[in-house]
C-alpha cells in the first residue's frame, strides 16, 4: 500500500493530536515491559527529583511512530525513524496531556520520502531532530 497524496518537498502535513494520561502510561508500560516507576508512581518520581510522573520517551516516540505509520499507509512502509528526547512530558494525575504531532516533507525520491517531525506538549517541543524515512 502506498500513500495516496502526491507530496512535494516543503509540504506541511496535517497535524494529529494524541492524549497522554496516567492510564495510557500504564498500558504502555505493560505492553513494552518498561515498568520503571518514574512513569507510574508520583511519589517515586518526586523522590528522584522529577516534577511529577513523566511519560516514557519511547511512548511519546511511539505515538509519533503511529502518526508516521498512518501517513505511510502502514507500519510496513516505515524504513527509518529517529528522535532525541529533549524535554520530558510531565503527566500529573487526572490530567489529559495533549501531544500535537506534525510533519514536513524534507525530501522526495523514487525510493523514499523523508519527513521532519514535530511533537509538542503545551507549545513546547518534546522531541528534537525527529525524522522518518518512509516508502512512497
Amino acid at each position: 500500500m502506498s500513500n495516496v497524496a502526491p507530496w512535494n518537498v516543503g509540504d506541511a502535513l496535517p497535524a494529529k493530536r494524541y492524549v497522554i494520561n496516567r492510564a495510557a502510561l500504564v498500558a504502555y508500560a505493560n505492553a513494552s515491559g518498561d515498568q520503571n516507576p518514574i512513569h507510574q508512581n508520583e511519589e517515586f518520581a518526586k523522590s528522584v527529583g522529577l516534577e511529577n510522573v513523566i511519560a516514557h520517551g519511547m511512548f511519546t516516540m511511539g505515538l509519533v511512530g503511529q502518526y508516521v505509520s498512518e501517513l505511510a499507509g502502514s507500519s510496513a512502509n516505515v524504513q527509518e525513524f529517529s528522535a532525541r528526547f529533549t524535554k520530558p512530558v510531565v503527566v500529573p494525575a487526572d490530567v489529559d496531556v495533549e501531544l500535537i504531532v506534525s510533519a514536513n516533507v524534507a525530501e522526495v525520491s523514487d525510493g523514499a520520502i523523508r519527513l521532519d517531525l514535530s511533537a509538542e506538549c503545551n507549545e513546547a517541543k518534546v522531541l528534537g531532530m525527529a525524522k522518518a524515512v518512509i516508502r512512497p
Partner: peptide, 27 residues
Amino acid sequence: SIAAFAAALGESNIDVAPPTYAITISL
C-alpha cells in the same frame, strides 16, 4: 504482544509491528 503494543499507541493495524516495537527486545 504486537496487538498490545499497537493498542497502547492507538494503532489499529496489527499485521506488522509498529516501527518502535523493536525497543521491547533491544532495551
